[in-house]
Design a protein around this nucleic acid. Structure first.
Lengths: 337, 337
DNA sequence: ACCCTTGATGAAAACGTTTACGTTGCGCGC
DNA sequence: GCGCGCAACGTAAACGTTTTCATCAAGGGT
């Protein structure tokens, strides 16, 4: 049926061992015979049977990615980053996403057993117990944007804290005095970090006692509600920092409805830099996440672990920096589009 | 090191053959021994070595997806659809995306050789010659949204034509008389189909001679330019159909700037139903694509082909229906949000 | 009582690689 | 000229499954 290493060996008048050596660039084969073997292989369109190879080398050249049910841009950016980095290293990418619950995620994780050399895990279900239960200890793993701190697994997070800190410092720098924060789902790790950045920035500015947190759930509607709440406050805030862009956008509507000018009366800023952010009115100042970079670096980190199996996996933890995107909704200097 | 079928066999006092049979649910093993073997396997946390299995069965239980550099939501929806359908069938998903040029895509395609049981191909580079050159004939393949008609490969397309047809019929039904179309990149297959739908709908309404096409390239800016062009036309159009939402949004800006009311003076409609579409002012009437369904059905189609290898792959071609989303930018009845 | 069928089980081959080890031939130092 | 080392190459084992074939016991029909 398909052409195997034996066919190549026969056609080139050598043993299978030589073919293997020649094709893998190992020593112990003349440049001349190597050339001949390579030519024969190319002519026969020989492609090594990956399963057979994996069986003996115990390497699959594949890494698995366990991803959550993400919203559009985030997901594609992440995969793009991972995929590009993987291809650069000649690795394959096995993807499993959109798990409804922890059980589904566990099944997916288990299914990847033995098919991958390493694992990229980003999942809301992936808490400590979950990982201990479902992850084979030996498998190199990198946790992406996880709240779990494990001494066994490396982790790579987006710098939510730093981004929020920078954003609030920008607002205080512009002279805003009463900055309220619209929070997101409580369980969300990103939200917690963003709120922490908000509080710390206020504290640094000596305004720690002004911290005010309105509740939200990442939806536009909850942002709208929070906006109306803010309007009713006495004294009124002069800036609103929403934990994500969708809520900021909802908030903008509420303010516009209330006849309040943005940013003149109240500045509104968000987080994520979703595509829509630049099109709302006024264009939204926000924090950009470099998701592709997150994915790429996660893969690199993982690949390093996979490569030197000698080392016990260091539980390194890296942060991906965020970037302040100043548009006009904050009333500051517009640095970029 | 890891636990193999031999370990299970030894612990259960049977041969490896029986273990294989028991675990795969084959006949020729007592219910009793099967139970015993299953228990031992579970206790040892035995998981079959997939490479060894693939080596002998010549099945990898994996399907490959060659995807282009897609924009956010489209990409994630597609993968979600594919992934969900794949998991339902116990198949794995090997992804390779974001190929800059045809060479990169070819390399990626070749690399998947032997690692997958079937292929999902969606790529602007995947023309007839490309496929003939890089696709092993034996490998079941489904082409997604491709302009290539091949008698060798099944194909699954979004019904761009039908969507455009319905949209234009909706506009004519509302009494619009001078409907112009903003085209996208010429090479784009979707664009061509959308334009074809536009022209056919006009022809059906007996307005074939009013067909007017402005050029665009899918960017918001090109939509803006086309909008200004439309404003300058004599007589002015009373409806603008943009080949995608981003251009429609750019067009809206141009009209607003020109002091023209939408939809009263000129209706504006788009295509894609990107998330932003409902948030612009006025909310955009558009055509929704069911991308997840596209992905899911593509996988199903492929899986069928993989399963009955007896049949020579029928070059079936299916269409995924589109859905008209009526908002207020067309001046018609708002049916949904 | 004997043969034949049937069903459960085991032994071993096969899948296509990589690699440890053995063999050969050649050049080089003495 | 002789042994020695080394490079090139071949042989065969090993990886962990599935599956074919053989074996064996039990049971049923004559």
């Amino acid at each position: 049926m398909s052409v195997t290493i034996k066919d190549v060996a026969r056609m080139a008048n050598v043993s299978v061992a030589s073919v293997s050596r020649a094709l893998n660039g190992h020593s112990g084969v003349t440049a001349e015979t190597q050339k001949r073997i390579r030519e024969v292989a190319a002519r026969l369109r020989y492609v090594p049977h990956s399963a057979a190879r994996s069986l003996i080398t115990r390497r699959t050249q594949t890494i698995g990615a366990l991803l959550p049910d993400l919203h559009g841009a985030f997901f594609s950016e992440l995969i793009r980053g991972i995929d590009l980095a993987a291809r650069k290293r000649g690795l394959y990418l096995l993807v499993s996403s959109s798990h409804g619950d922890a059980t589904e995620a566990a099944i997916a994780l288990r299914a990847m057993q033995g098919r991958v050399d390493g694992l990229l895990v980003m999942s809301p279900h992936a808490d400590r117990a979950f990982l201990d239960e479902n992850l084979p200890i030996v498998l190199p793993t990198v946790l992406i944007n996880s709240h779990v701190r494990s001494e066994r697994h490396a982790a790579l997070d987006v710098d939510d804290y730093g981004g929020a800190l920078a954003m609030v410092e920008h607002l205080t720098g512009l002279g805003r005095k009463r900055i309220v924060f619209i929070a997101g789902p409580e369980v969300n790790h990103d939200v917690q970090e963003r709120e922490r950045g908000y509080r710390d920035a206020l504290a640094r500015a000596g305004m720690g006692d002004t911290a005010t947190v309105l509740s939200g759930d990442f939806t536009e509607e909850s942002g709208y509600r929070a906006g109306r709440e803010a309007l009713a406050m006495q004294p009124r805030p002069d800036a609103i920092f929403a934990a994500n862009d969708m809520m900021a956008i909802g908030c903008l509507s509420a303010l516009a409805e209330g006849g309040v000018r943005t940013p003149d009366d109240i500045a509104v800023v968000g987080f994520d830099d979703i595509p829509m952010a630049r099109y709302v009115s006024p264009p939204l100042t926000t924090v950009r996440l470099r998701i592709a970079e997150l994915g790429a670096q996660a893969l690199d980190l993982l690949a390093e672990q996979v490569d030197d199996e000698s080392e016990p996996p260091v539980a390194e933890r890296r942060l991906i920096p965020t970037e302040l995107v100043i548009r006009s909704s904050c009333g500051g200097t517009a640095k970029r589009g």
